[in-house]
Design a binder for these strands. Structure first.
Lengths: 212, 212
DNA sequence: CGAGTTACGCTACGGCTCGTAGCGTAAGAG
DNA sequence: CTCTTACGCTACGAGCCGTAGCGTAACTCG
């Protein structure tokens, strides 16, 4: 959980004087942002519109977020916080299917569908935004991959790694394969990620991992 | 090759009367679009700026393309036309490495890097744009996958498919895995796709395909 | 060659969004 | 009660959008 999505941070109850920022405003703004994404999509979403929906002055938005990209990242990051977990389903194959379906469920929401690619595109020219996306969204996803591999190794399905650098590289590879495939299927091919697809994909990946 | 990137088509030399559209203008506009993408990125690229660079009136752009998205799709599609091929490297593993490096080389160009994700994001709310991207870019990529699989089957590295519907599903799966992984590695993880990564990825995929 | 048709360049425009400044007011801390 | 910071509101210059209108250029057909 991000305690304060603001740009200039403050300790929540630590010494700082003056009027505190309204937490209700934060919630209202992020809710309004998600609603606007659903109705308008990334392209037609404007700061003024979000402010109006949230019942807040436009200047208040700019006091907390540098622009549309940062605002939207925080708005969708909250969804990732709420909906990402990895229950132990007993086998590597089943765990992968689970995480795939979970990624897909998030990506198929109209809010995230229209927003994620857009902010990533922006981030190719904005290193700070890239870092924000990484810490707010990407790293949270990657944790599931690391957890899944640990479990598989504990079950004896996968060998433990000798070299820790190679282990890290391998985790990055697996992460790019899983997340990339789901994203590409959903947004580029525009085909649904259903249980059948998840099963075939997981089978392919497990076969690869066990026979490397 | 797209003979005419215009919206309203005309037969090139067929009966139509009136002044023909200037092919030099087309080239100049698409060149200017790519140059503007390199310098400004998707977000700050404007139609007026492209028109000025191309030495063309802004109205001329709008006579041919409905908007920024369509223009950029055609501009980057030309790059895919020029740089996509699949020389036979003798093995499935080597062919995959080749196609991965080729995708990556395209994605790492500043023009495509900033533009591809952006237009895909737009396309989630614009079916016509989605089709344009599909026919101008995605289908061209997918051909390489189909070709690579045929070769592998001819070499005896992969079994021939029994069910043609299953074969098509499988090709889609492989395509999403390859393209998705490369895109995710390049744009989200922002790590380079070098020969080492390509080798590891190809090894993983080949192991999966052979042991399904 | 002349008439018809389409493309082009140019100018101008209303409309929208951006991001900021300035002001008076509200809400906590000491 | 005073200090400090957040808030709402208004207003603004700037930039871009997409289109209309006009005169001119290029090509086809009779």
């Amino acid at each position: 959980m991000t305690p304060a999505p603001s740009v200039g941070r403050r300790a929540t109850s630590g010494g700082r004087t003056g009027r505190p920022r309204s937490p209700e405003a934060d919630r209202a703004i992020l809710d309004a942002t998600r609603a606007a994404l659903v109705e308008l999509g990334w392209g037609k979403l404007t700061m003024g519109d979000v402010a109006a929906r949230a019942g807040v002055a436009k200047t208040t938005l700019y006091r907390r977020w540098a622009g549309k990209s940062e605002l939207v990242v925080d708005a969708v990051a909250a969804l990732f916080d709420e909906h990402l977990e990895l229950p132990d389903r007993g086998s590597l194959q089943a765990d992968i299917e689970g995480v795939v379906l979970q990624f897909a469920a998030l990506l198929e929401r109209p809010e995230t569908k229209t927003a994620l690619m857009a902010v990533v595109a922006e981030s190719t020219r904005d290193e700070a935004l890239r870092q924000r996306i990484r810490s707010a969204i990407v790293d949270r996803q990657k944790r599931l991959v690391l957890l899944g591999r640990e479990r598989a190794q504990a079950r004896g399905e996968l060998p433990g790694e000798e070299d820790s650098a190679a282990a890290a590289r391998n985790a990055d590879l697996i992460f790019d394969v899983i997340a990339g495939a789901v994203v590409h299927r959903t947004l580029v091919s525009a085909e649904p990620v259903d249980t059948a697809w998840a099963r075939e994909f997981a089978a392919l990946l497990v076969a690869g991992l066990k026979n490397l």
